[in-house]
Computed example of a mutant assay.
Amino acid sequence: MDQKHRDELVRRVAADLIANGLAGATLQRLAAAAGTSGRMLVHHFGSRDSLMALAVARAREDELADMRRALPADADFVGRLPDAWRWFTSPEARGSFRLFGEVAAQARLAQPDDDQGVRRGLSEDWLDQFALGFSACGLDAQEARVAATELLAIVRGLVLDLEATGDLERVTQAYGRLVAHWGHGLGAAAPA
């Protein structure tokens, strides 16, 4: 199989994992999503676990690329926060949050004392990008990292709340208050 076809199969499986999560990700479900048979997936990837690892890595790369497009780390970082909320609450981003919540939970169960592994990695990329953005808006490195931590915690918490309650209006208002807090000194507007 050529690399282009292999990449397409991984992309399709990654899309399935974002849409449907890890729970129930049987070889049959993944094969249906990829448009092939389970036997062919095992033939091409060696095992379901190998395929899943590649698909999760692909989903992570795509998530980070989407986040960087939605919220580039530039001097208008805080001003972009309202528009970024539209991406944070999009079906794709919410699916990614759910998927990586499952990944983190599985890593925690598999390696409860490993704070340098998968779970840490799921936060560091976001914290780094957000801290770069806050630094570009004039915060010193320490304050930028603290603000990045607040933003990440609030976004994850509000998206989790949205998943549980479906109350987009309320969680958007809460996010708007956070943006207004930073925007007071840095020039951002609340989300519409």
Rank of each mutant, 00 (worst) to 15 (best):
M1T: 14
M1R: 09
M1Q: 06
D2P: 06
D2T: 14
R6L: 05
D7W: 12
E8G: 07
L9H: 10
V10F: 07
R11W: 09
R11V: 00
R11H: 10
A14S: 13
A14Q: 08
A14M: 09
A15C: 14
L17T: 13
N20F: 15
A25Y: 04
Q28H: 10
Q28Y: 15
L30M: 14
L30Y: 09
A31T: 02
A32H: 15
A34L: 04
S37D: 04
M40F: 14
L41N: 09
L41I: 06
V42W: 14
V42R: 15
V42K: 05
H43V: 05
H44A: 01
G46V: 08
G46E: 06
D49W: 02
S50W: 08
S50V: 08
L51F: 06
M52L: 11
V56Q: 03
A57T: 04
R58I: 03
R60L: 00
R60S: 01
R60F: 04
R60T: 07
R60Y: 06
D62T: 02
A65I: 00
D66K: 02
R68S: 07
A70G: 12
L71D: 01
L71F: 10
P72V: 02
A73F: 11
D74E: 10
D74L: 09
A75P: 05
F77C: 10
V78R: 03
G79R: 06
R80E: 12
L81Q: 08
A84K: 00
W87I: 02
T89Q: 02
T89G: 02
S90T: 01
P91N: 01
E92Q: 03
F97W: 12
R98M: 03
R98Y: 03
V103D: 00
Q106M: 15
Q106G: 15
A107Q: 12
A107L: 11
R108W: 11
L109N: 12
L109I: 08
L109T: 13
A110C: 09
P112L: 07
P112F: 14
P112Q: 10
D114G: 11
D114Y: 11
G117N: 04
G117Q: 08
R119T: 12
R119L: 12
R120Q: 13
G121K: 05
D125W: 04
D125Q: 07
L127P: 01
D128A: 07
F130Y: 05
F130S: 01
A131D: 10
L132C: 11
G133W: 03
L139N: 02
A141E: 13
A141N: 11
Q142G: 00
Q142K: 03
Q142M: 06
E143Y: 08
A144G: 13
A147S: 12
E150P: 00
I154Y: 09
R156C: 06
G157E: 14
G157Q: 03
L158I: 13
L160T: 15
L160H: 01
D161H: 15
A164P: 12
V171P: 13
T172L: 07
Q173T: 14
G176L: 07
G176R: 14
L178I: 03
V179D: 11
A180D: 13
A180H: 14
L186P: 01
L186Y: 11
G187C: 07
G187Y: 04
A190L: 11
P191S: 06
